[in-house]
């Protein structure tokens, strides 16, 4: 979560609110912030740290591991209409990549800004070419996009 906190300014620039969730109590969140996270990032965690004791939210989002009694790593991008646009679920030992979350947010925001008129191909980021789906593009993607464009 410290990586998200470290990139919080970029989330804010994109107009994105962050909410973190674990089964720890509010008190444990406070101590973790005070004793460790604030020392990693140089400031207090800027977003609400939700306490999900009992795992009710984890169950609601299908990320609660009943046997371990924890919420596994699940990341959901929710748009201004309250619709889930993306989700990523990982087992505990592997962390997420915050820059990939930010890239996906930029892509979903671009698609939304064009009212779905444009789509972002694999590996898209700001400044790269988008696709405009329509009858003329069927079978012709190879003319406008190459897998080499991904990197």
């Amino acid at each position: 979560m410290s990586a998200v906190a470290d990139n919080y300014e970029e989330f804010q620039k994109l107009g994105v609110e962050v909410l973190s969730v674990s089964v720890d109590s509010q008190f444990v969140h406070k101590v973790w912030n005070d004793q460790e996270l604030s020392k990693m990032t140089g400031c207090d965690i800027p977003f609400p740290m939700i306490s999900d004791g009992g795992g009710n939210l984890g169950k609601l989002y299908c990320v609660y591991d009943e046997a371990a009694g924890i919420d596994v790593r699940g990341r959901f991008i929710i748009d201004p209409d309250g619709v889930i646009q993306a989700m990523e679920v990982l087992t505990p030992p592997v962390g997420r990549r915050v820059t990939e979350t930010l890239r996906q947010i930029r892509a979903f925001q671009h698609v939304r800004a064009t009212a779905g008129g444009e789509a972002t191909p694999s590996g898209w980021d700001r400044g790269k070419k988008t696709l405009t789906p329509g009858p003329d593009l069927v079978g012709k993607v190879w003319k406008v996009w190459s897998p080499k464009d991904e990197l």
Partner: peptide
Amino acid sequence: KWVTLCFYPGD
């Protein structure tokens, strides 16, 4: 608003 909701295993 856009929201990123992040679950994680524990503090």
